[in-house]
Design a binder for these strands. Sequence first.
DNA 1: TTGTATGCGTTATCAT
DNA 2: ATGATAACGCATACAA
Lengths: 352, 352
Amino acid sequence: MTRDLREAGLTQQRPVVRRAASIKDVAAAAGVSPTTVSHVLSGNRPVNEETAARVRGVVNRLGYVPASLARSLQAGSTSVIGLLIPDISNTFFAELAKGAEDAAHDLGYGLILCNTEFDADREDRYLGMIRSRFIDGMVYASGSPPSRRRLEALMGKFPIALADEEVEGLRGALIAGADHEAGGRLVGEHLRALGHRRALMLTGPRDLRSGAARAHGFVQAFGGEVVERVGDFKEDSGYRLVAELLDAGGFEDRTAVFAANDLMAFGALAALREAGVSVPGDVSVVGFDDIRAASLVSPSLTTVHQPAYDIGRTATAQLLQYVSRGEVPPASRHTLPVELKVRGSTAPPAAR
Amino acid sequence: MTRDLREAGLTQQRPVVRRAASIKDVAAAAGVSPTTVSHVLSGNRPVNEETAARVRGVVNRLGYVPASLARSLQAGSTSVIGLLIPDISNTFFAELAKGAEDAAHDLGYGLILCNTEFDADREDRYLGMIRSRFIDGMVYASGSPPSRRRLEALMGKFPIALADEEVEGLRGALIAGADHEAGGRLVGEHLRALGHRRALMLTGPRDLRSGAARAHGFVQAFGGEVVERVGDFKEDSGYRLVAELLDAGGFEDRTAVFAANDLMAFGALAALREAGVSVPGDVSVVGFDDIRAASLVSPSLTTVHQPAYDIGRTATAQLLQYVSRGEVPPASRHTLPVELKVRGSTAPPAAR
DNA sequence: TTGTATGCGTTATCAT
DNA sequence: ATGATAACGCATACAA
């Protein structure tokens, strides 16, 4: 339903924006040079108080606002950076984005949202913004494999910081991320302490370091027998993987599932419920991320809390520290602590 | 924990970014004029194929990418717009942002994320981006009251579209939003049909049209006795309002609560649970928005689904339709349909 | 088919 | 204390 009020005469017809006042217009109206106007506004050099007052009057009267575009061209930087993420509607990335935006805003930078939907073309287009120097830097929070080579060529030439996800085989990067291995370890210890000995692990795509680290920490600390299945971090894949195993009888007497993220854990939960398997009575389920929904589902999900906000904030703040000085950030890693949230989806295995 | 790998010698020392190649550099290296380079790249006029090939070779060799900043200055527009929202970590706005980003991307525009945290200063700073013409337009999705006058001055002068929220007293705007009144009506009818006659309504801030519309539709369709309490759309206020009423005995024999958004409904749910009031046994609770968590809480929340993605997408697509032609959008309203999601938090009132 | 000159709006440099 | 001029990097009107 669309209603156009124009015909109702409720709005005046002035479709085309008229040219905004420029510094020249102000200068002419105030009887001074553009240089003086510039200095009145910037305070970069002393101006006679009377002259300044006159200029300010004209500025107000004309509603003059300096064109930041021209300023950027002259300065060689835009004070805008990009944030590249796969999916803003995933609360993990939304929190990360919030941290990034906060950090950017604090330092006077704007943030362009580059939502890729895991689409390589889209990612490429956004990476083009940094090559065309429309943005001063990029916080990159998506480990989608196709772009690694592209990223490699950019990094070192342009200021890029990695958030959350290490990209396999990428050297020399500034990165802020959670301690994935410790997270996996916490889960392993928790399940082991509860008495579980046979587990199913749902991993993320093979080429993501974070996933490997989670798996490694888990397997090591758990000590028991672990079967791995590769998913894609989406709810569907968690569902499918578990359902398939259940159907094929491959689940056997496994009593625990560790999913590499909460979404896949939700999928696993759904598959188990449909199959009439009780959680945590028959099988315990653990996720990773601690997105908001994790504490709301029933049973509530035991998971590893990732400091998404801090990851975004740290990556951005670190990046800007270098960007603001016109430098490319050096390789360094900022590891943020994780925390195991024990909730209702884990319990000791049922006695057999 | 921060580890700097620089000292480890793992990265080469080239801190400062060297000047990128410009069109002049390409022209000189190819032995042609900048004009020709420009035309080879833009295709705006025919160029001899040999010349063009030579130019392209140099472009590749030098890694030349046109500075979009300079292009924007010349063109008078940046192909970037802003999206102003109060809180990206609220899934409603995250979905809206996704829709906006999709629409912007489809039309070749970038989107600057302006997260205000309901902070007026922050909002002002972001609105400044449009005055300085760094962005070509703004999708405004926050009805925080302090800025109405500021907004009024901008609208008509700059391309702004309102998403989701009508700002009270603002005329002449392009707006895309849900059918709030119909939503309220659906809830009223639902509760009435279940047999409820006395309800508590938790509204949003007084000066938001959407809230008023929801309340109006609800009160009218419900027909019974309604007590209203004003909240601020945050979970806390839903909790506080209900807890206070419960403590003061003001809840009386009310059997239903309609919160103007899901967050407040969650708060209400928590307050009722703490007071030992069963939902939906003793009291039914209804929310508004249908954020992801609504279907996950226990009991799952009956609520009105708002098409957040569509709202963001529609507002943005409409705005860009005018922006791309250098026009200021005319007043028009795009009303998107809502849908009642009946879940576990509503039931007939207990017989007394 | 190609080149020259000009302008976009600002700030820095160099003069006065 | 103020101004003239150049430069940022590109696109285009005009000329050849």
